[in-house]
């Protein structure tokens, strides 16, 4: 830790290309700065009062054409830099193939992280090297920002929004995790570690985790304890839609629209049941807004997802 760093290690795919852009910008900027400062210095010395330098008339082209020249030159150069820098973002638009989803919830002054297998971590994130990870970010109170300097990435975590960040670690090691958006008194204490392990070490790490049940079993327990089973379970007399095989498929609604049952739909139905009432059912479901915190919501959604998708995968496959 003690040695003086100027450039951080490049520990992700993005780090390489971002550093490339950074270096390009540094070179261009230092050239322009040297040009300007150099000229100011040279003119100051050469044309100081009383110096013998010749101060003849300026050539005709010197005035207007030069002006037009450097306007177009700077304009062209800056647009070129923009195109070069923006090209990296278009690559982001391509959706990932198979990305494991890790849920991270920002809470005043800590990061709560849940792996799909149910492993929970506070201010720590263990990742396998070489894999694409989709971080699903939520906030429970104020705006935070999930910032890993070694990956050259950060993403604000805004309450009321689910934001995603795709990270592709390429180098094993331990890297700093900061909260970059001011979030209150202990904003500077909201620091964590990102540990990138090799595939085998990551598998070992997963296995030695305390046998925390995974998300869907925890969701199952919540499904029963919070009374969802009372209406949505097979034997109940109450007319409520059965949830087996619902996830992923189209759901006909009472007002004629059909929506696909994705995470957002499940979440909306829990928090605002009267928003999208399923066709043929009465809007009698109570709203759970306030009764479930972020982690429980994620677990319930995982459980309903695990009740089987109507489309491709077989029943009960882990996502």
């Amino acid at each position: 830790m003690g040695e003086i760093e100027i450039i951080l290690p490049q520990a992700s795919v993005e780090a390489g290309s971002t550093d490339g852009k950074l270096l390009g910008l540094i070179i261009i900027s230092s050239l322009i700065t040297l040009l300007v400062a150099g000229l100011v210095g040279i003119f100051a010395i050469r044309y100081r009062k009383g110096s013998k330098a010749s101060r003849g008339r300026l050539p005709a082209w010197f005035d207007s054409d030069l002006e037009l020249g450097w306007t177009l030159a700077t304009g062209g150069l800056f647009v070129a830099i923009f195109a070069w820098a923006a090209s990296q973002d278009f690559a982001l638009a391509v959706p990932p193939q198979r990305a494991t989803e890790v849920h991270a919830v920002g809470k005043q002054w800590m990061w709560k992280i849940e792996h799909p297998g149910g492993q929970r971590e506070i201010n720590e994130l263990h990742l396998p090297v070489g894999e694409t990870i989709d971080l699903v970010l939520n906030s429970q109170d104020v705006i935070h920002s999930f910032y890993i300097p070694a990956f050259r990435l950060k993403q604000d975590v805004v309450p009321g929004h689910t934001t995603r960040m795709r990270i592709r670690p390429t180098r094993t090691g331990t890297y700093r995790l900061f909260c970059a958006e001011y979030c209150g008194s202990e904003h500077s204490a909201m620091i964590g570690r990102v540990v990138v392990l090799s595939k085998e070490a990551y598998a070992d790490w997963l296995s030695i985790q305390p046998e925390g049940d995974d998300l869907s079993t925890e969701g199952r327990q919540l499904f029963v304890s919070r009374g969802c089973a009372g209406c949505h379970e097979g034997s109940s007399k109450v007319r409520a839609p059965r949830l087996e095989g619902v996830f992923g498929g189209p759901v006909p609604l009472a007002d004629g629209r059909t929506v696909t049952a994705d995470d957002a739909y499940i979440r909306d139905s829990i928090l605002q049941p009267k928003k999208d009432v399923v066709a043929g059912f009465a809007p009698i479901m109570p709203s759970f807004a306030g009764a479930l915190d972020e982690g429980e919501l994620v677990a319930l959604t995982a459980y309903i997802r695990s009740l089987g998708r109507r489309d491709a995968t077989a029943t009960g496959g882990t996502p």
Binding site: Q140, D141, G160, A264, L271, Q272, A289, A291, D293
Partner: peptide, 16 residues
């Protein structure tokens, strides 16, 4: 990204 307006869901009552 996503269908219009979906980026903002009312979260559970946040502690405040």
């Amino acid at each position: 990204a996503g269908p219009f307006g979906s980026s903002i869901e009312p979260p559970p009552a946040v502690g405040r």
